[in-house]
């Protein structure tokens, strides 16, 4: 297999704005391997799908771009589609102001 799903998963998780990968409702979004599966990563002939849960941060398109940049070395030039499946809501409603004021790219939680 030209694209290693574990490498894609690790690269996506290395982005600070990504809280986790999402396997969909029942874990159906995955790369199926002998004996196990890699949740949230689906690889087809011409595309790599990454399904993420984002942290509460300023700008989701920028998060998607960051994921795309992070996985670029391991996706072998395939198109990368990023699906933001869910977002982590801050506990205190006021907290969102603080996070939203921060510049994009520094939206990681303290």
């Amino acid at each position: 297999m030209p694209v290693d799903p574990d490498a894609v998963s690790a690269a996506a998780l290395s982005c600070p704005e990504v809280a986790g990968l999402s396997g969909g409702l029942v874990g159906e979004v995955a790369t199926y391997l002998p004996g196990r599966s890699v949740a949230g990563v689906r690889i087809t002939d011409d595309e790599v799908e990454i399904h993420i849960v984002a942290r509460w941060c300023a700008n989701l398109p920028e998060v998607a771009d960051a994921v795309r940049r992070a996985v670029k070395p391991v996706t072998g030039g395939l198109r990368v589609s990023v699906y933001v499946e869910d977002i982590e809501v801050p506990d205190e409603p006021g907290q969102s102001d603080v996070l939203a004021e921060q510049g994009a790219g520094s939206g990681a939680r303290p």
Binding site: L60, P61, D65, R79, V82, Y83
Partner: peptide, 19 residues
């Protein structure tokens, strides 16, 4: 984008609008 699509799920918009 040319490098691929970004898709935002309903639940993301639900939560942001709720907060």
């Amino acid at each position: 984008t040319e490098q691929g699509r970004t898709s935002i799920a309903d639940s993301v918009v639900l939560k942001i609008a709720g907060v």
